[in-house]
Amino acid sequence: MNTEVQNFDEIRPYSDAEVPKAVEQIISDPEFTAAIIRFKFGKAFGGLSKVLSPLLGWYLRRHWRKLQTVQDVQRYVSGYLAQALKHTTDGVSCSGLDALPKQQSYLFVCNHRDIAMDPALVNWCLHEHGFDTARIAIGDNLLKKPCVTALMKLNKSFIVRRSAKGPREMLKALSQLSAYIRHSLQQGQHIWIAQKEGRAKDGFDQTDPAILKMFYMAGKAEGQEFAAYMQQLNIVPVAISYEYDPCDEAKALELYQRAEDGGYQKAEFEDIDSIIKGITGYKGRIHLHFGQVVDAGFSTPEQLAELIDKQIYQGYKIYPANQYAAGEPVSDEQAAAKFASRLGHMLPEIQSYARTMYANPLKNFHKVQEE
């Protein structure tokens, strides 16, 4: 058994040897097949489930038996992603990767708008430009079902144990995560992680210094200085810009309810619903900008967070929707009218929250330009 399995078995992705067993586990899970049928047939699910589940299991075994390695899985997923992007976007573009040497491993710290699409799009761009795909940090709050856990670990996801209780257990979980990130980078594996816990539902992207302190824990345990250790990680800020957020209305409603009621009670499978909507919903144009390695100009987590934010704000692609939402002159009147119509279909009381969501990236862009 290799060192990675011994040290990080609780959180690591599946290895190639584990793929066939994990695939069979997913196919055999009645909740997984039921979820596919429910998504495909909606209200007709109840009467069709018993008939279709065995047929679906047979179909999946026939098509998934060729999945023997993690690379096989990623190649299979990329085909579905290509179809999803074709039908739900007006094109995906990226910039900045040409300036990053391929022989390095990178810690991609990314703004966070969509649970599944953010890391999927980063890996899509990496693959398209000849880079290896990244291992993906995912919170265990999303892994409430065994089939979901297996699916994510098949696709190079590793687990962030947010559910750890008590100071001692939390410290152990964070130390393990920090060590795993360093171990992966030393192995030549890229890492994707969001700049803070949870999506930026108000569109205000800001790196949480606590994430950077977690990165540092492995170096701190060895007595290394913060800046010297963080320079070794090859941190690259990534800005993802969606012209339209498929979950914008749901996010605006949550922000409204928090403002009105002082809190928000998330439904049991709300995160899963958000994942599905993010994948299947219309997104317009999408741009990803990969920044430069942040290797100087900081000595504290807060200073490093500011440098990451600056690159994300500069790299964010501004669309007419952002200009319209901020009340600024728009570069494309037709696109602005399309966004205005989108706003008009939302409840009047949540429209201001949706506007703010789209305006904040432009405000942050202006802030960096002024500085």
Rank of each mutant, 00 (worst) to 15 (best):
Y264M: 07
I37L: 04
A82E: 08
R162H: 05
L233S: 12
Y256G: 04
L60K: 14
L343E: 11
G198T: 03
Q334P: 12
R62L: 10
E10L: 09
V368T: 04
E169D: 11
A228F: 07
L304G: 05
L52W: 08
S28I: 09
G284H: 04
E349V: 01
Q74W: 04
V148E: 03
D273Y: 15
E349A: 13
E10Y: 13
K172W: 04
Y229P: 06
D273F: 02
K153W: 01
T3Y: 04
Q323L: 06
R75D: 09
S241H: 03
A337P: 15
T300M: 06
A340V: 01
T280W: 11
P54D: 07
D261E: 11
V77H: 03
L55S: 08
A194Y: 00
G297R: 14
L343P: 08
S15E: 08
G57C: 09
A82V: 12
L56D: 11
Y313E: 15
R342P: 02
L56H: 05
P101S: 08
K145N: 02
R162F: 00
T149F: 05
M170H: 00
G278L: 13
A44W: 07
I115M: 02
E371R: 15
T33R: 11
S28V: 00
G203T: 10
I115L: 01
A321C: 07
E370T: 15
F339H: 06
I138R: 06
K220M: 14
I136L: 04
I159M: 00
K102T: 05
G188L: 03
A359W: 03
P237K: 00
P246V: 15
G281W: 10
A227L: 09
V238F: 02
K196F: 01
S184F: 09
P13T: 02
F298Y: 11
N364I: 04
R258W: 13
P348F: 05
T133L: 08
K213E: 15
G57K: 12
Q265N: 11
R342M: 13
L288F: 01
K21D: 09
P20R: 10
R162E: 00
T149R: 14
R113C: 12
A228R: 15
F8E: 12
G130T: 06
R258L: 04
A228E: 15
E10A: 00
F298C: 06
A22L: 10
Y316H: 14
G327I: 00
V70I: 07
G79H: 12
Q71D: 10
A296R: 09
A164Q: 11
K251I: 00
A321V: 01
N234H: 01
E270H: 14
L185K: 10
M152R: 13
Q83C: 12
Q206F: 05
E254M: 11
I191P: 02
I350M: 03
E249D: 10
L142Y: 10
C247Y: 12
S178K: 07
M170Y: 12
Y313R: 12
L304Q: 05
P101N: 09
D16I: 03
F339C: 12
Q265H: 13
E333W: 09
C94N: 04
Y59A: 06
T88N: 13
N141W: 06
I138E: 02
Q369P: 03
K338Q: 14
P329S: 03
V51P: 02
L97I: 00
E254D: 01
V92L: 01
R285E: 15
P20D: 14
K165S: 13
Q351D: 00
Q195T: 05
D90I: 07
P54H: 09
Q351C: 01
N2R: 15
P54Q: 03
K196A: 11
G57R: 14
A116E: 04
